[in-house]
Every structure is written in structure tokens, then in C-alpha cells.
Amino acid sequence: MRFQALVKRDVLVSWRKKSNIYQPLVFQLLIVTMFPLGLGAGAQTLAKIAPAVVWILALLSTLITLENIFKDDFEDGSLGVYVLSGMNLPLAVLSKALAHWLTTGIPVILFAPVTGMLLHLPEQANGILMLSLLIATPIFSLLGTIGSALIMNIKNGGMLLSVLVMPLLAPVLIFGAGAVLETTLGNSAYGHLMLLSGCAVLCLTLAPLAAAAAIKINLE
């Protein structure tokens, strides 16, 4: 099936170019080191900011990978191969998002407890942290397809991509980091996670259409 073929190809390409997978994690490790250096190593100080920092790191480290979702394909011409194959374009976008999530989202989810541990995030928050990222990382990938489709034609489009995607990510950050924060305070994160899931459903339905529209305009 076309959907699977595209997912398989993208995962294989990322797997061969390992940097795609470990780059976000190295980025997280680098930045997480800076917090104790700049803030002081007091466990209490770090634990206080940990929910937000762990979440922002997951978000930022994904953000730096978004540009290439369509840009690589555009540059080597393989975008034309699947656009002209007659494959349903929003479906192609979905498979690109799924492949991006498999190669970037999952490592980021699995790595989050490590940054959490380094910042003294209470261990009982790890479950909610990973759950919130499990809901949110697909949103990153889906919004990433829109951003990447918009800027695939532009040199150094990374900055513009951040400007375009950041406002859309603001609610995701609020609900996601909020969920972890509520857990560390001993409250229920149910409301936050529900709202986050709402965002995910909305993205799942609208983002492929928006990204497909952007690709079409870009190929005109």
C-alpha cells in the first residue's frame, strides 16, 4: 500500500541517517546541562522549574527537526515522485507525519524521564510526563508538516518555520506542561490531558489538509 510504502521509506531513510534520531536528544542533553550551570544546582530550584523545562526541551528539540519533513524530498525531487503518483495528498502528508513521529516523537518520549531525572522532577510525575508527550508529539509532527510544506522552497527557512508554528504550539505547551505541573503539585491532570487530546484530534483532521494545500501552492 502507498501509505505504508512512504512510511517505510521515510523510517528507513532516517534510520540510515542516524543523526535525524539522536540529534534532538543530544540537543536536549546540551541544553539541560546549561540549567544547573546558570541557575545553581540546588535540587529544589531545579525541581520547581523541571515540569516546564522538560516539556519545553521536548518541544524545542522536535522543532529543529521539522524543517526537513518536506524540504529533503523537495530538494532531491522525490516529492514529485509521490505527488505525481496520484496518491491522495493529505494521506501522503499523514504518512510523512507518522514517519516523523516514529523517528523523532518516540525517542523524545522515551528520553523525557532522563531529562526529568537530571532536573530532579519527582518520579511520580514521569507517567503523566510521558503520557502528555505521547499525546503531544503527534501534534508536533502534524504541525511540522504544515510548517515544512510552507517553507520547503526557502533557503534558511528554519527561523520562519518557528515563527509560523510557535503560535500554534502555544496551547499545546500550556496544556502539556500544565499537566505535568499539576501532577507535581499533587492535583489531577485529567483536564489538561483532555484538552491536549482535543488539540491532537483537531490537528489530525485539519493539518493534513492544510499541509497538502501548502504543497500544492508551492509546486505551482
Binding site: I146, L150, L164, P167, L168, A170, P171, I174, F175, G178, L195, C199, L202, L206, A210, A213, A214, I217, N218, E220
Partner: peptide, 28 residues
């Protein structure tokens, strides 16, 4: 022309998201 169509797409995406952004920020 391409620039305007892409900008229009960005504006529409923003318009759809504006209520969500405002709601989430007020809630926050």
C-alpha cells in the same frame, strides 16, 4: 501570486487557531 496564496493559507490557519490560543492563554 504564490506568496499571496501561501500567506492566505497562513492567515486562515491563524484564524482557526486564534480562538484556541486565546482560550488556552486565558485558561492558563
Amino acid at each position: 501570486r504564490k506568496a499571496a496564496r501561501l500567506a492566505a493559507l497562513v492567515a486562515i490557519i491563524g484564524l482557526v487557531n486564534l480562538p484556541i490560543i486565546r482560550y488556552s492563554v486565558y485558561w492558563w
